[in-house]
Design a protein around this nucleic acid. Structure first.
Lengths: 340, 340
DNA sequence: TGCCGTTTTGCACGCGCGTGCAACAAGTTT
DNA sequence: AAACTTGTTGCACGCGCGTGCAAAACGGCA
């Protein structure tokens, strides 16, 4: 690391140093760094000059300690297989940062780690926790909520029935109904549903909606397969296992997948391990409109989530000091493509 | 949010509360929460019981403020297109969290944002900054280093010639030489190189190495194309543009890509927009051994980076208090697959 | 029991900033 | 020009914990 000890910035420049340099009091210095402070343009200018000259930036730890607002949110993630997660991360961190929020990325290491991860976040006194994942068991959430450990607990892009939680997600029922209508309208009659892990707290209603729709429309219950994670690889294995050695007449004519991660894996299985064609032999639908789903290699019929809009709304929720239920469902858009 | 005001945990349980509840002093309480503290098993037990009963966890802000160690690192990321980044994020956050480090995920919004992002991190008084991306211009780094704003500045999975920076990466020269040897040994003679964005600070030596190798071996300079980001979509477009309308004899026989993100896009272009076969018409190689590259749909000849190992080493570096150059190059492994 | 060496515990002080209010300066009205 | 309003600045105190040291408790041995 830098070793020339003659340089000026003595690592820890405090507001006091800037104050004496600018000929004002320490409080004026800190005021200069807050946008809503009552300070004259002239002294702010003086302060800012001295600050940049000395290389001073206010210490958020101390600010947070004194004000009891950390401007920090924790993002708990447990699912790094799903490529769509990268899109979500990008949008969230972008919107948050633009609005002045910092993001703590917490990897929920395994199922037993949800509680410790939550505790970890609370040690940093984050202003809110955002859950983006599947394996948050209700117990851990309940204790966290009961202990009033977080001001806001947000479940993003999934749905939680927990009343103490703020849900920001796409309306799965509306979305999946539209998608099911599409599948039916295209003449598919032997669907198979490919689902991800089943969880209690952070849920998706896609499977239930599709099955209910099909039951109501055609009076039959489509077969389902599920995998332990939203991983294309696992999906490939699952579909291969489920469909190999079946006579063509016995194959589903469409695989409806809970999201694109699974749809990608399913298509890989159909095309590369089963040697069939999409959509001629078996069609596929997904959800999320992930970048890969849009690529020329897949062209998956999918459903967009307005992630950018959802992320902006999340920031609104964070900035608001009202005490009401901020939960909100968004509407996505069906994206018909070549896969179905 | 929870509204039943009769519950006990009054949001802010402090060590003093626990102290009176446990019948010890506040200092004993805080000692109980540090693993290397001198405290009797009995009083730690007492403290811990009282703490869990009251729902107390130490406040890291205050701890950090007093001790001048935040146990926080900032992860600056500017490239969310490359699916491999998710793998890197998973390994880093996992290793860091296991070792007790928290991670600040900072989205470097655009090229001009590198400086502000660095400042942002320094306001949180992070113990180290980890750079995972491309567009960190040298100026921003230089000022940050000059201001001694960070104890450690780590460039992960890329190489920086800046002497004040700790580089943890794969030995690109060794790796690309091995890959080039492989390509040559397989009989390819008309390679094209597909590169990502060129940057000054956080660099990759893959292109230079490949070109130098080919020059030395065959005396010719292979053509190059480059794209503005490690995005499969951009790679597809670039390859399509570069190769369409070419007679078959004029096509490259292999496209050597700087990483798998580009290789995936290249394969998509070859197969789906140019209507050719991989590897029969044009072969492809990648780098990173991303999950998709391993999938049955691609089977890309690639090169692993020992990301888990690199992440663990990173933690070692963070934990060390020595003051030396921790830079280290790792060796990866060639993964020959069907694409070349 | 009494003495000594070894844990274990308690404490004053400071980390850097925000809060709320009081003091002050500048600008406005009659 | 005096009284007032508005805008600006200074300050005591506290946020919750770590540091280093001094006081107290403990355990073993004679």
């Amino acid at each position: 690391m830098a070793r020339d000890d003659r340089t000026l910035p003595e690592a820890h420049v405090t507001a006091d140093d800037v104050a004496t340099a600018a000929g004002v009091s320490r409080w004026t210095v800190n005021r200069a760094f807050r946008k809503d402070a009552s300070i004259s343009a002239r002294s702010r200018e003086k302060v800012m000059q001295a600050a940049t000259r000395l290389g001073y930036v206010p210490d958020m730890r101390a600010a947070s300690l004194a004000s009891d607002r950390s401007n920090l949110v924790a993002l708990l993630v447990d699912d790094f297989c799903n490529p769509h997660k990268l899109v979500v991360l990008e949008h969230l961190t972008r919107s948050l940062r633009r609005a002045g929020w910092d993001t703590l990325l917490v990897n929920t290491l395994d199922e037993a780690d949800a509680g410790p991860a939550l505790l970890n976040a609370s040690q940093r006194r984050v202003d809110a926790v955002i859950l983006i994942g599947v394996q948050f068991d209700d117990e851990a959430l309940k204790t966290a909520i009961a202990a009033r450990r977080f001001r806001k607990l947000i479940v993003f892009a999934r749905f939680s029935r927990n009343p103490d939680t703020i849900n920001i997600a796409v309306d799965d029922v509306a979305a999946m109904t539209e998608l099911a209508e599409y599948v039916a309208a295209r003449g598919y009659r032997r669907p198979m549903f490919l689902a991800g892990p089943r969880t209690s707290s952070a849920h998706l209603d896609r499977k239930e909606t599709f099955l209910a729709f099909w039951q109501a429309r055609f009076g039959t219950e489509p077969p389902c397969t599920s995998v332990a994670a939203y991983s294309p690889t696992l999906a490939t294995e699952a579909v291969t296992t489920a469909l190999s050695d079946r006579p063509a007449a016995d194959l589903p004519d469409v695989i409806v997948c809970e999201n694109d991660a699974l749809a990608i894996g399913a298509m890989d299985a159909i095309r590369h391990t089963l040697g069939l064609r999409v959509p001629e032999d078996v069609a596929v639908t997904g959800f999320d409109d992930a970048p890969q789903a849009r690529s020329v290699a897949y062209r998956i019929t999918s459903f967009t989530q307005p992630v950018a809009e959802m992320a902006d709304y999340l920031v609104e929720v964070l900035d608001s000091s009202e005490d009401r239920d901020f939960s909100r469902l968004f509407l996505g858009q069906l994206k018909p493509r070549a896969s179905a």
